[in-house]
Design a protein around this nucleic acid. Sequence first.
DNA 1: CATCGAGCGATACAGTGTATCGAAAGATAC
DNA 2: GTATCTTTCGATACACTGTATCGCTCGATG
Lengths: 203, 203
Amino acid sequence: MRAAIDLADADGLEAVSLRKVATALDVRPMRLYGYIAGKEELLDLMVDAAYAEIRATGDGWREALRSHAEATRRAAHEHEWLADLLGGRPQLGPHALASGETVLAALGDVDVDSVMPMVAAVKAYVIGAVRREIAERRAERATGMDEKHWQAALGPYLQRTLATGRFPALATVVRDAAHLDADQTFRIGLDFLLDGIEARVSR
Amino acid sequence: MRAAIDLADADGLEAVSLRKVATALDVRPMRLYGYIAGKEELLDLMVDAAYAEIRATGDGWREALRSHAEATRRAAHEHEWLADLLGGRPQLGPHALASGETVLAALGDVDVDSVMPMVAAVKAYVIGAVRREIAERRAERATGMDEKHWQAALGPYLQRTLATGRFPALATVVRDAAHLDADQTFRIGLDFLLDGIEARVSR
DNA sequence: CATCGAGCGATACAGTGTATCGAAAGATAC
DNA sequence: GTATCTTTCGATACACTGTATCGCTCGATG
């Protein structure tokens, strides 16, 4: 599993193959099946290992949810392949459960029936936000490699398409709106969600 | 692309191979490269085609965002493979842009700098929520196949793990909290988010 | 009618995950 | 100490995957 994570960190998830993991461990490929049931289980183990770093800190439900969200995002920045795997399968490994425990422990004084929807909503938001963020980062890395303004980076295609006048509202927003960076976008969306939760919970 | 969607609808995304698509079209595999650049482009085309059904309806920003979210979820229910692809790469195809246009058009009277964060947050939530929902649905289908209560469905493992006492908060929530169905969970989270947006936008 | 060019597809290559089964090694019984 | 049994191990094989290469075929042009 550690070998697989190293491979994925270096060259992405599609670089993880049982054969490469085996050679990294100086072992014959079939030997891996003595420890894992197949590749899917290996991926699950990788995700669970990543959850070891995802913990909630601070007091109160809001700070717990916020810190858990930021920790998840941080882990995905460190291991971009996590964005490909998060939410893809239910995570019930020990580290994932321990991670959930840290956030639920901080929600002790919240109505028990509200806890699940709250953390489910935050987790859903984080998964989607991180996915989009990593996807955009990869696209920037693939094309451009240096240009900061994605308008120019993703090239003539969008410019041309927006110039057709078929998407007036989209063109207006792209032209007139301030473009926030990834950190701001993530935090604003998270604040939206936490504000909405606060309004319903404390009422 | 239509052939690929049929394959994915029937047997999941991993059943989509260029060879199978080719034989479905009664064509030799290499012939496909006259129309697409590779498999990734085919997947992008599939996603863009799915976006054709994802539109925002109704008046006002809240109803636009809500309907867009529900439409996305509906599309993912009809094409479960969409959950695997959503958010994985930036979507700039014509149908995806047209989909975004319908929601942005309904946000005309919102401060232009607030528009992007609003739709980004909703899209992120939807992607994550749908992913988790489909993942859970698949897990239920794989194990059990009939049991409604996932506590029993995912078997002795969780029961045993929770019984260890290492995750007291988790155990309490699982035992005491009401378990909502997927529809309710999705809508509650979406309402959290829309409420939070409303609080910040109209202020 | 001949030549050329472009579209096409058979073949090939380097991979992938995993099933099978013979060989080796370790543990047990005498 | 030897013989049997059992468990562990790995080489090989299979059915796939996406895609590069390149010779062939066929239609259009001179």
